[in-house]
């Protein structure tokens, strides 16, 4: 019996020693030990996970520590971030983080006051609106004109965020160009990409929100196929798509993609300027994380992007590299948010 207690004691002591040893090795850095990156998506097959694991891998090599991505979903990620201020838990998410708040969805708070906004790392330029190949609407201008003429257009979206912002902008544009007709653009609230596609196949939606990545192959199906779709509009900025690899995605080249962005497809934001939306991925930190830790991560990421290797990996997976250090990113995202607030308020 006594022996057994000794064994246990020795074991615990050894474990503690091993840990202490590991911890002291990374003594100099403001963030000690392993880093966990929580993301705002529950899917390990989606763009947030993919982008975050590219960044995590690069960070792990640079900082010489373990960096792990956990797909916990938005509300759990915010909670995890609130709990740990040491910098051992970080978050990567995209524009949903403030759009959810602007749309008044539960579980979202103002990220600019509740957390520290960190550097941006990449853009997913794929946010798109599509119609069946047989649809009379051949461009987003046709949709706007159609609503203006009194045609009811049903758009399948996932409410309360990235998927809705393009819809809101479209509604706003109709209101500006054909006042009083914006009610003809109707949202069909649904969930996943599968559900949106299904609504199109069922004829329960005329236009759907989708992405270049998920819908490119559908756009190449022969017109007689019930599943065939065509792109109407990409919300990305022209300068974003210009940075993509020339071969684009699948068989759709960069030149073809450029046909679908502003100014070729124009959705006005205020009568002068076109609305654009790039889905940007950025870090979020705990409010109380030290400035040293913020600088430490800024510096590491600056070096990673200066080396230029990560950009190739990102582009290969159809992400557009987009590194902005914390302070620059904060100001940039803040003004981006304010623009979208105007649109959302205008159509309320």
């Amino acid at each position: 019996m006594k022996q057994a207690w000794k064994v246990l004691g020795v074991f615990l002591a050894v474990t503690a020693l091993v840990w202490a040893n590991n911890a002291s090795a990374a003594d100099k850095s403001p963030i000690k030990g392993n880093i966990r990156i929580v993301i705002g998506s529950k899917s390990t097959g989606g763009d947030t996970y993919q982008n975050s694991s590219i960044v995590a891998q690069a960070l792990a090599e640079k900082l010489g520590t373990n960096v792990k991505v956990d797909a916990v979903g938005a509300s759990a990620a915010f909670k995890a971030l609130e709990k740990v201020s040491s910098g051992n838990t970080l978050m990567i998410f995209h524009d949903q983080s403030y759009l959810g708040y602007l749309y008044g969805r539960k579980g979202y708070e103002d990220i600019f006051t509740e957390y520290t906004v960190g550097p941006t790392v990449a853009i997913n330029p794929g946010n798109a609106y599509l119609a069946p190949k047989s649809s009379p609407y051949n461009s987003i201008a046709d949709v706007i004109a159609g609503c203006g003429k009194g045609e009811k257009v049903r758009v399948a979206i996932q409410p309360g965020g990235v998927s809705e912002i393009g819809f809101s902008a479209l509604k706003n544009a109709i209101k500006l160009t054909h006042p009083g007709k914006e009610g003809n653009l109707v949202a069909v609230n649904t969930g996943s990409q599968a559900d949106k596609n299904q609504l199109l196949f069922d004829g329960q939606a005329d236009v759907i929100n989708g992405s270049v990545q998920a819908n490119e192959q559908y756009s190449r199906l022969p017109a007689e196929d019930q599943k065939a779709m065509k792109f109407l509009w990409l919300t990305a900025r022209q300068e974003t798509i210009t940075q993509a690899n020339e071969q684009g995605m699948g068989e759709t080249t960069r030149a073809m993609l450029l046909e679908f962005v502003s100014p070729n497809q124009s959705v006005t934001q205020d009568g002068k300027k076109d609305f654009t939306f790039d889905k940007e991925f950025f870090f979020l930190y705990n409010k109380d994380m030290s400035q040293e830790a913020v600088d430490y991560l800024d510096k590491a990421l600056t070096e990673i992007f200066a080396e230029g290797k990560i950009q190739e990996t990102q582009k290969k997976s159809f992400f557009i590299p987009n590194f902005k250090p914390s302070t620059e990113a904060q100001a940039y995202l803040m003004s981006k948010k304010d623009q979208y607030r105007v649109i959302i308020d205008a159509i309320k």
Partner: peptide, 13 residues
């Protein structure tokens, strides 16, 4: 995710 990480898109084609 295994497909997208290798830069392959799954779809009807």
């Amino acid at each position: 995710g295994a497909f997208t990480l290798q830069g392959l898109q799954v779809g009807p084609l």
